[in-house]
């Protein structure tokens, strides 16, 4: 059996929107692909992240106020090298803002980001929440879920195009990507609603290790859920 180590970064601090389900489902999808997915919890921002032994970093959504305390802890050569060398990192929802250049808070203060993604964020006065449907630019893969947008984002290299929803800032752009650092606003939990995306990432990690995985997961229930979400979106009444 092959092995992938997933670093679940600060699970108690980045704890929103049931996205722990995405971590759980990685293990289940791994089983279907004959990959032993090991979850390594990194509890606190004082704890060292063992970049050398990790294949994927998971940053789940968190409160913006918490991000400003986490960013200084992530500023390191080790993270830089990990991402520079094509290490996989997934930043969901607000966590993605940490990897941009800056976050302008509602109170007028600015939080400097890590700068890996060419983007800036401005905290919204009102929350935007809705269902979500996007198409990933590189692969054409479609994802569905929910979007809880706490900030308007201006990103130079979007991950995807919005089919339904607000996206980064109502311009049709969704998320951002640099190397294998992926930021998306799509939650749901993301991988529960879209296990085919998790499968693609796990297979990408294995290719990076020189191994081609040919098995395919069974996503019947998730596909039914996906179709139900799209039907709901298509029939939604306007205000």
């Amino acid at each position: 059996m092959h092995k992938i180590s997933v670093g679940w970064v600060y699970p108690n601090l980045l704890n929103l929107h049931g996205e722990r389900g995405s971590v759980q489902v990685l293990v289940e999808i791994g089983k279907q692909l004959d990959i032993d997915v090991e979850i390594v919890r990194i509890e606190d921002f004082d704890d060292p992240i063992p970049f050398d032994s990790l294949d994927l970093l998971m940053f789940l959504p968190g409160e913006i106020i918490t991000l400003s305390h986490i960013i200084p802890a992530l500023q390191s050569d080790a993270l830089h090298n990990y991402l520079e060398q094509g290490g996989y990192a997934l930043a969901l929802g607000t966590s993605g803002l940490m990897f941009g250049k800056s976050i302008l808070r509602e109170d007028g203060t600015t939080v400097s980001g890590l700068g890996y993604l060419d983007m800036t964020a401005k905290e919204r006065k009102f929350v935007f929440g809705d269902d979500y449907h996007i198409r990933i630019n590189e692969s054409g893969m479609e994802l569905a879920g929910a979007q809880i947008q706490m900030a308007d984002v201006d990103a130079a290299n979007p991950l995807a195009t919005v089919i339904y929803g607000m996206g980064n800032n109502n311009t049709g752009a969704e998320g951002a990507r640099w190397n294998n650092l992926i930021y998306t606003n799509c939650t749901g939990p993301l991988f529960v609603k879209n296990p085919w995306f998790a499968e693609e990432i796990l297979k990408g990690i294995m290719i990076k290790k020189g191994i081609q995985i040919t098995a395919t997961g069974n996503h019947t229930i998730a596909k039914n859920a996906f179709d139900a979400t799209l039907t709901f979106i298509q029939n939604k009444p306007k205000k």
Partner: peptide
């Protein structure tokens, strides 16, 4: 907008 999200189940 009407909303079909259910991620509270996973919390």
């Amino acid at each position: 907008p009407y909303y079909g999200g259910s991620f509270y189940l996973f919390d």
